[in-house]
């Protein structure tokens, strides 16, 4: 009886350890602008967290510290048990496990859609071409772009490009997905196709941190809404609480602006 008990205990502990843990993170830009002011946030496996807040509040900068695209000066960030430090040797090992989707898609224009998706698994994970091709095919099918696999990104619409970008990030089989305003650069009629892909991804159990202003998506998909303002987290709540009964005046002000 002793053995199963300890296993259960270990499993409980494992899920209790957040996969993303930011503790008192401070960041100043080169011009001394204090963009992150002692932020702490924990994200657990399988959780979907939506970061909202006015522009300039530091949301994007904050999630970009999770894969070390941005450095920070004080505090700690621990991703899946590994602390990100300025002098760390193998930052690529973290980035492999953290997928990112950008506002401007950032697809590689000189590669075809399928090559965009295959590149990192081959170059970083060392997969064979056929392995990479088969997973790229699966992912492109999942995001509904398989019939465009041989085209170049410039030949696709914005919504299609963003779905390819999601497939490209997923091809690395990351443990965490970061979305940095993924629909902000899209024409309105293309927002939905991207949100649908994100919604399916959330339902599959992916850990996601999304910076977005899509209220419908946040309400339906998020486990937790985090509101940032002036480099600080001012409110953390479930979508129900947040949208129906925001507590902080900054949240109320923000919601009145985006919902009007």
């Amino acid at each position: 009886m002793q053995q199963p008990h300890t296993q259960d205990h270990a499993a409980v502990l494992d899920t209790a350890v957040p996969i993303i843990s930011a503790q008192g993170v401070d960041k100043w830009y080169a011009n001394n602008f204090h963009v992150l002011k002692g932020i702490s946030l924990e994200v657990h496996r399988g959780e979907v967290v939506v970061l909202m807040g006015p522009s300039g509040s530091g949301k994007s900068t904050f999630i970009r510290t999770f894969n070390a695209l941005e450095a920070y000066q004080k505090g700690r960030i621990i991703i899946d048990g590994t602390e990100l430090t300025p002098k760390m040797k193998n930052v690529e090992a973290i980035r492999r496990e953290v997928g990112m989707v950008f506002q401007q898609f950032n697809l590689f224009p000189h590669l075809t859609v399928v090559e965009n998706v295959m590149l990192a698994p081959m170059e970083v994970r060392g997969w064979s071409k056929s392995q990479a091709k088969s997973i790229a095919g699966e992912l492109l099918e999942r995001v509904g772009i398989l019939n465009q696999a041989k085209k170049y990104p410039g030949q696709l619409s914005g919504g299609q490009q963003q779905r390819v970008a999601i497939a490209r990030a997923l091809a690395m089989q990351p443990k965490i997905m970061l979305f940095d305003e993924p629909t902000s650069a899209l024409d309105p009629e293309m927002v939905r196709e991207v949100l649908d892909v994100m919604r399916n991804l959330a339902q599959s159990g992916m850990t996601m941190v999304c910076v977005t202003h899509e209220v419908g998506f946040a309400r339906e998909v998020a486990d937790r809404i985090v509101l940032m303002a002036d480099g600080q987290i001012v409110e953390e709540a479930t979508p129900d609480e947040f949208f129906s009964n925001p507590k902080h005046p900054r949240s109320q002000q923000f919601l009145s602006q985006i919902l009007s």
């Binding site: 492999r96 950032n106 590689f108 990192a120 970008a165």
Partner: peptide, 10 residues
Amino acid sequence: QWEASRALGL
């Protein structure tokens, strides 16, 4: 382009 390739772990 740098950021996307960095984010993929290249």
